[in-house]
Design a protein around this nucleic acid. Structure first.
Lengths: 349, 349
DNA sequence: TCCGGATCTGACAACGTTGTCTAGGCTCTA
DNA sequence: TAGAGCCTAGACAACGTTGTCAGATCCGGA
């Protein structure tokens, strides 16, 4: 700090009361605005004055109150991200990618998990709006986002990711769930499977129905009938998924392959199959850490979660930079990563 | 919304300009303070007045500006979390746990990744302080946290997690890295291994040196010598880890078992060992998704990341509730999860 | 009819910062 | 040496909210 060893001799800050620019100004013997100039690196301050102010700042432990600054300036340099679960291995990299873009634009990130609850999504999004975030990135849990219209009209930039917004026109960044699932199922078909099961998330989740649509398209393209007992949409709780997988694997005409609708489902099904007496082929949507090391390896339809996040954040900041474009729908490709599980011969002939 | 179908006939909000309580008051024909009362659910407003105000609020799309509120009230109802990497499978659940506790206390969470860079940690923490978060949870990247002292003195509650703070006295919540590593290595020793390698993170990271200390303690307790070529601390980039693992596995006197210092290292080493002609035992610090499905299964020393986060957040809110206690150090136990890899006979006799 | 008290309401200042505007001092040139 | 022009500095209002306080209204009871 300052070279003279004077340990905070003058009014040491009371506990809980922070010094303000006024305090700094008084101590430095300058005007309020001069302190503001120094703090913000604005020009027009003599080196000598600046030093005096800096000394006062360090002596008092002053730190600018950004709430006041935000109130005055209108922009908060922060964005909000509402996702489903911060800890989900699929969303965490997305979160991180958004953070990086925000950081590059000098913005802070506020985030929260909706836990797939539309009401909670709404609460979070509106709380962020009350904080006057400059922009909002949302992974929708609900299917009606009209509640955001006043906010969007008031200038809060908004981008939806992973799933489209409901009943509202806004930027969306998606993965090609339909095409990815179709490709994954086609891979199984190409390896001779005819009875293929599909286990996915609840039908009100857009990606779940899209992937199911891809499954049906691939089956239809191959001229294969779909027995409805092979299709299961519902919560991804391990118990349900396990039960469904076991159901499909039992009986006189069991499926010989499974397509799983997301990383959580895949992880559970991998565990079920590890105990299966017969080999059962598996292709899953979303890549898994260590999936390459399982034997047989798990073939997956991989999304680039980080790219989803990055793309969404970049679109958001484009909006914030004032680029006026009509709402756009960006669809990112998926990538089939073949790891051998598909190559298993079907258990039957 | 309101039953009368009048689509925002009067001054529709200009784009980018949000209505304020003043606007609402004007439209409702009441005073400013009355609007404030309605918005905050304070008593003393006639049902009739309240309805008029509510109507004006929905008509204008008013949402309280929390920046102004915060400025006025002093408390922000938000906490900041600085961690190493939002997307790391170890920190993501910690993040989520903190979020849950914050939510239970009605607080929002702002977070950021330090990427193991002390300067970035400092920037983030101070940016959060400038936003006047009520409290701060930090996974330290640096080893000198004196920069936080003015903030702590000014009343920002602070808790460190996963690693202790440097040169500052504050609450800390840790896992028992030393004990966990010692137990993990002892497990290998108990299965007959004598030449055990250790690959960990950079030595300036507290958990890395603690785990190494645990390794040495277990070896010493068993009367086993440690060849320094078996020990490697450094960045956890896959290339380096792979090279080190391969080095330890080569030569005339290769290690027969490896202890890995965290999840990233373990994941890389698992891949190396999958290609190894000889079986090599492995115990890793931190559990891995799907680790139970590998063959051989990977034995791990598991930390409860969520519990770390929860505990830290709870201590933080205890501080915020004004419970005055001296800084405390909480150490959570680890859990050895045996999955068979340790039982492999050493490659030698 | 009047008064005490309760209830409802609004005027005003304050939170800490930044934008605008003006004053004063200085340098430079004619 | 006077005037123009630049540079530095500070006074003041405003951002949108909430706390304080005082005014207005209404009720019941004497």
């Amino acid at each position: 700090m300052s070279s003279s060893a004077q340990p905070a001799r003058s009014p040491s800050p009371r506990y809980g009361a922070r010094p303000t620019m006024k305090d700094v100004a008084a101590r430095a013997g300058v005007g309020l605005k001069t302190v503001s100039r120094v703090v913000n690196g604005e020009p027009g301050v003599t080196p000598d004055t600046e030093r005096r102010v800096q000394d006062a700042i360090t002596a008092l432990g002053f730190r600018r109150n950004d709430s006041a600054r935000i109130l005055r300036k209108g922009r908060t340099a922060s964005i909000g991200l509402v996702l489903e679960d911060l800890a989900d291995p699929f969303y965490a990299p997305l979160n991180r990618a958004v953070e990086e873009v925000a950081r590059a634009h000098g913005a802070l990130l506020i985030n929260g998990s909706s836990a797939e609850d539309p009401e909670r999504e709404r609460e979070l999004a509106l709380a962020f709006c009350a904080r006057r975030v400059d922009g909002l990135i949302i992974i929708p849990a609900g299917d009606d986002h009209r509640y955001l219209e006043p906010e969007i009209a008031a200038g809060i930039a908004t981008v939806f990711v992973d799933r489209p917004a409901g009943r509202t026109d806004a930027d969306v960044v998606l993965s090609d769930s339909f095409g990815g699932a179709r490709e994954g199922v086609a891979h199984l078909v190409a390896h001779g499977h005819r009875r293929i099961g599909f286990i996915g998330d609840r039908p009100r989740i857009h990606t779940a129905t899209e992937r199911l649509r891809g499954y049906r398209a691939a089956m239809a393209a191959a001229g294969l009938p779909v027995d409805e007992s092979w299709v299961s949409l519902g919560p991804t709780a391990p118990e349900r998924v396990r039960a469904e997988a076991e159901r499909m694997l039992a009986g006189p005409q069991p499926v010989t392959a499974l397509f799983t609708g997301n990383n959580r489902v895949t992880a559970t099904v991998v565990r079920v199959l590890a105990r299966s007496p017969r080999p059962v082929a598996l292709v899953g949507f979303d890549d898994l850490e260590l999936a390459d090391l399982l034997s047989p390896g798990v073939t997956v339809v991989a999304q680039d979660a980080a790219r989803l996040g990055r793309t969404a954040a970049e679109r958001l900041f484009r909006q914030l930079d004032g680029v006026a474009e009509p709402p756009q729908r960006v669809e990112l490709p998926t990538r089939l990563i073949v790891r051998g599980s598909g190559e298993l011969p079907p258990a039957e002939g």
